[in-house]
Design a binder for these strands. Structure first.
Length: 256
DNA sequence: ATGGTCGGGCTCCGA
């Protein structure tokens, strides 16, 4: 059994105790991290290795940054999403662990929707669609995990009215996400829990977590070869309940 | 009713 998780940690340095703790208690084989918020050289490699994990990292100063953390060695790594000639954001890393190709994706937030940030988000989704097509065609087990900053349906939003102007729920955003899904990818959480509210993110404001006013924006997309092996998936709210928590919590799946 | 709270890096940006 292989357990693969995605977690936007909102600063890997601020979250290091929580991360190491979760590696020990949840014992995932692979964790796809987003928003590490440090340059590559400052990633806490020694502490993660001491917990029994390898890491591959692409960071930048202050913002963004993604990593793959795995018990086994990580090979054939690429450190950016192809097709972004003038894109210097550290938002994509992809590598092979065992026989599974995994990607850690930090999709642009895209707010406000009348700014260039929204166009950048839609452009990134289109680049991801093109790249995902190649991964899909490989017929390998592939897991595209990350903070997609997309609420696929209204059921993934605690308050549709409050979010109406938000980039995470716009029809264009959802259409671009669906275009990827429709290649044949399986949304691990929605497949195992077709109904109900299963949030992965709660804003720091207004005690949103304790009131379960959240969003489902962190996703694990599985290629058919991976989906055939899907045994379980879940959202571990434990880390979000802690003091000094990230605003996101880990989402995981188990492949046989 | 456009607030509220984080993290990073340095007086404000991004989420």
């Amino acid at each position: 059994m292989t357990k693969i998780a995605t977690w936007n940690v909102n600063s890997v340095k601020a979250r290091l105790p929580h991360l190491v703790d979760w590696l020990k208690t949840a014992s995932p084989d692979v964790v796809l991290l987003q928003e590490i918020k440090c340059v590559t050289e400052e990633f806490p490699r020694l502490e993660v290795e001491a917990a029994g994990y390898c890491c591959e990292v692409i960071g930048q100063k202050a913002y963004n940054g993604v990593a793959i953390v795995a018990k086994q060695k990580i090979s054939d790594v690429i450190y950016e999403l192809p097709g972004g000639a003038d894109d210097d954001h550290a938002r994509y890393i992809e590598g092979t662990v065992g026989d599974v190709r995994v990607a850690s994706i930090y999709l642009p937030n895209g707010n406000p929707i009348d700014s260039p940030k929204f166009a950048y988000k839609l452009g990134f989704l289109e680049r991801l669609r093109v790249h995902a097509l190649g991964l899909f065609a490989s017929e390998r087990p592939v897991v595209l995990g990350g903070d997609y900053n997309v609420c696929p349906t209204d059921e993934d939003v605690w308050d549709v009215r409050a979010m109406a102007r938000d980039a995470l729920v716009q029809p264009e955003t959802r259409a671009a996400f669906r275009k990827i899904l429709h290649q044949g990818w399986t949304d691990a959480i929605r497949t195992l829990r077709p109904h109900g509210r299963h949030y992965t993110y709660w804003d720091y404001f207004q005690n949103r977590f304790t009131r379960d006013h959240g969003l489902r924006i962190d996703h694990l997309l599985l290629s058919p070869a991976a989906a055939d092996r899907l045994k379980d998936a879940g959202i571990d709210r434990g880390p979000r309940a802690k003091e000094k928590a990230s605003d996101h919590t880990p989402v995981w799946c188990e492949l046989q």
